[in-house]
């Protein structure tokens, strides 16, 4: 019997998810024993044409990481969807939009301006050249994929069967998912292959949390020497743990937490939550200044809330494209979804 075929692909991502596959270490050998890797541009020499030539559904499972922000990524996502029986959105960017998704607070023009324009200190570009989809050169035409105004999660572009969350996904969850898929023990379509409870449930600092929690002052992690035995929120450092799925560490104590860092929210929301940022803001607003609330003036409240630096970026760090906000409103809505030309 031929071995099942597996594809790995990356879209708008940092490469960390590729590392996460490599991080399977010797387990990857087990995977290779069981499957044929038919496509993995990051690690092996395959061409897009190799995929195009495959029959529909020939690939058993395609793991796609990264968000979708260019025509090329969109095209490859659609191609892999066609060729694969199962598509797994792998990692935060693919699952929720991820860090690249924060670009939705801007648009193509402003991003190009800050990357190639005069405001960018590291670029010497006196002619103000920005990437074009087609550039005529003496030798002929050069093309680049179109850069979209809006970054999308994978399931905003194609139908997705499963999600493995994380920035990057921990190897143990990846291995569990591969084993489940290969053994045919498939969960319900659309399942997120991680625990449902949020991080506080398994957090080793949870017992240190006071029963009635009130935040007097909000601090950034860089501003405190945080006590490794104390809940971050109780210390005034915003931790996204309450609103973020657990499972990031196989040992069950939170990967960032065990490194004495607050949770940043890469595992995304639990099943009942639609909008991570909104939920966290609502929870935080409920406990900020709770003690002595009646003696606070509007100005006091504002001062306290203003201690949150970059709230949009903080609360929607991994989830902006899939949140209720989705993106900043475009000045010209007709241009919203893509760049034509």
């Amino acid at each position: 019997m031929p071995k099942p075929k597996v594809a790995f692909y990356w879209c708008a991502s940092c490469g960390g998810c590729e590392e996460a596959i490599v991080d399977l270490n010797e387990d990857i050998l087990k995977v290779v024993e069981l499957v044929d890797i038919v496509f993995w541009p990051c690690a092996m020499d395959f061409k897009y044409d190799d995929v195009r030539k495959m029959k529909d559904n020939e690939i058993t499972v395609a793991f796609i990481n990264g968000a979708i922000r260019t025509d090329e990524q969109e095209e490859m996502a659609n191609l892999l969807r066609k060729k694969a029986q199962i598509v797994v959105a792998f990692g935060s960017c693919s699952h929720l939009g991820g860090i690249p998704g924060l670009a939705n607070f801007w648009d193509r023009e402003t991003i190009f301006e800050s990357s190639y324009g005069k405001g960018c200190p590291s670029v010497d570009n006196p002619d103000g050249i920005v990437p074009q989809t087609v550039s005529k050169v003496p030798e002929g035409e050069l093309t680049l994929p179109a850069f979209h105004n809006t970054v999308k999660s994978l399931d905003q572009v194609i139908d997705v069967d499963y999600y493995i969350p994380g920035c990057a996904p921990p190897p143990y969850l990846t291995m569990k998912a591969i084993v489940a898929i290969l053994s045919g023990e498939l969960p319900e379509k659309g399942a997120i292959l991680a625990p449902e409870k949020t991080l506080c449930d398994e957090c080793s600092l949870n017992d240190s949390k006071p029963e009635k929690i009130s935040i007097k002052e909000i601090k950034r992690i860089s501003e405190v020497i945080s006590d490794p035995e104390k809940c971050f929120l109780a210390e005034g450092v915003i931790c996204m743990g309450p609103v973020t799925r657990s499972g990031c560490s196989e040992e069950g104590d939170g990967k960032c937490i065990s490194a004495n860092m607050p949770c940043r929210g890469c595992f995304g929301p639990p099943p009942e939550v639609k909008d991570v940022g909104g939920k966290m803001i609502s929870a935080l607003a409920s406990i900020v200044g709770l003690e002595g609330e009646e003696n606070m003036s509007e100005e006091d409240v504002e001062k306290l809330i203003n201690q949150i630096v970059d709230p949009a970026g903080y609360f929607y760090r991994f989830s902006l494209p899939t949140s209720l906000l989705r993106r900043k409103r475009m000045s010209n809505p007709a241009k919203e979804d893509r760049y034509n030309g």
Binding site: E196, K197, T198, C200, N206, K209, E211, L233, G241, I287
Partner: peptide, 13 residues
């Protein structure tokens, strides 16, 4: 209780 993570946010409120 299958979903509650025990974060205590609600108790003091």
């Amino acid at each position: 209780e299958e979903i509650c993570c025990g974060c205590n946010t609600c108790i003091g409120l």
